[in-house]
Design a binder for these strands. Structure first.
Length: 276
DNA sequence: CTTATGACCTGATAGC
DNA sequence: TGCTATCAGGTCATAA
């Protein structure tokens, strides 16, 4: 579900709620959604219990919350994950799929819920360990990507450019919505093999990725179903999608019919007239 | 090494 | 009303 703009919106709405708060109790209700990285264990202390939150950080679709004793909790939301903050700890039912929670010194709480369990938590003793063990394989963050990085990571590839954009090793944070939106904005057909793109194509694509992601952050992300920010609010960017979810409808540029097909295992929408 | 494909899960919705 | 099929903001493991 959430791509970079949704995760960044969660980060921005969550951080002011939890910064400086001490974790009174941390609880992992479902052990199998949490993986300890080297030097960490699945204990409340390694989930920040007893420590004070000093910062948050995001790379691609991954969100790290770190505390004054160094420990880090890395959250990945998968397709249906929600990380929310509430003024008090709710009473959970099985239908909530609340797999972990943290209660702070002022009684407020942070909850990780994820019905489909494609997401999860990773624990690390410090940020360098997280970067090395978990974030090391990710490409450059989508907000900072430039043409030369895309060209270097995917320029020789025979696969289509849509599949490359979904590959987090190429660029971190782009998912199915924003891949289609960025390709439309740069006039590049998703079916094009990577090695047929020129340097100018990669430059335009990188600029489109940065702009599409930035615009979506300004709108608070795209809420199609599950996604909410840390306060439970929906995003509004879904009303601005030019192609995603609009297969068979009219292209906003040429009024032709938008094509829909499966590429890179995902539903893909584009305009054959405007994207070459 | 690269690339394609099925697998992993639950819930919402559409169609019968 | 209920059943079944299909689809969904994502990644893995596996095999070719």
């Amino acid at each position: 579900m959430p791509e970079l703009p949704e995760v960044e919106t969660v980060r921005r709405t969550l951080e002011p709620r939890i910064l400086g708060r001490q974790v009174a109790v941390a609880c992992l209700r479902r052990k199998d959604i949490c993986e300890p990285l080297a030097g960490s264990k699945r204990t409340p202390e390694h989930m920040l219990q007893g420590s004070t939150i000093v910062g948050t950080m995001r790379h691609g679709k991954q969100l790290a919350i770190y505390a004054d004793h160094g420990q880090v909790v890395c959250v990945h939301l998968g397709m249906s994950g929600v990380l929310s903050w509430t003024t008090s700890l709710p009473k959970f039912t099985a239908a909530d799929h609340a797999h972990a929670w943290w209660r702070f010194d002022d009684g407020s709480a942070m909850v990780f819920a994820d019905p489909r369990r494609f997401g999860g938590l990773w624990l690390a003793p410090d940020l360098p360990t997280l970067r090395r063990e978990k974030w090391g394989t990710l490409g450059i963050d989508g907000l900072m990507v430039y043409g030369h990085a895309l060209h270097r990571e995917a320029g020789q590839s025979e696969r289509n450019v849509k599949a490359a954009l979904l590959d987090q090793k190429v660029v971190a944070g782009v998912g199915n919505i924003y891949a289609d939106e960025a390709l439309f904005a740069s006039g590049i057909a998703p079916t094009r093999a990577c090695l047929t793109l020129s340097e100018a194509d990669w430059d335009r694509l990188a600029a489109s990725i940065r702009r599409v992601l930035g615009d979506a952050i300004e709108a608070g992300g795209s809420t199609l179903r599950d996604y909410r920010d840390a306060n439970g609010a929906k995003g509004s960017h879904q009303t601005r999608h030019a192609v995603y979810g609009r297969g068979g409808e009219a292209c906003l540029t040429c009024r032709g019919v938008l094509t829909q097909a499966t590429l890179g295992q995902r539903t893909t929408v584009w305009c054959k007239q405007c994207q070459k």
